[in-house]
Amino acid sequence: MALIKNHELTPDTYTRIAGDAELPDQGGVLVDLQRWQDDWQSLGRRGSPVGVWLTSDQHPEIIADDLDQIDLVALEFPSFRDGRAYSYARLLRDRYGFSGELRAVGDVLPDQLLYMHRVGFDAFELAGQDPLSDYQTALEEFDVFYQPAADARATALRLRHARG
């Protein structure tokens, strides 16, 4: 499994913590929602980055007030067919103003990467033999976008009217 972040293969600096397992002495940790809710104070005191992993039935509104203390939100796709996390990502970026790392985890496949990127994901856990190449191919497949989303891509509508 490779991590692509900001368009590059990147070592994962977060340690995934299962349930209430012990925390490492240092370094970023990625915890589940229950652990965050139980231990958010001590997690904050560690002085290292904290990530929260949300499953697809956990609405990020639950952590909307905590986002200034969270560096990474990982949204899980239990199956690539479960599209809830696309809306969660939009809400995190547009509604709750989250500017940290937004990571797609779970059943993350090349054919959905562009959509994920458009709704605000900037990090992806990808399998496959050449994940970076798959990623680059997927993101380059389209240059025209009809609808505004959480990315900076200009919509066709804007370009049409900008040319005067």
Binding site: G83, F142, A149, L157
Partner: peptide, 14 residues
């Protein structure tokens, strides 16, 4: 139509 085509958020609806 244009809004709905390749809509990144709503291509995997229930």
């Amino acid at each position: 139509r244009q809004y709905s085509i390749l809509n990144p958020e709503f291509s995997y609806l229930p």
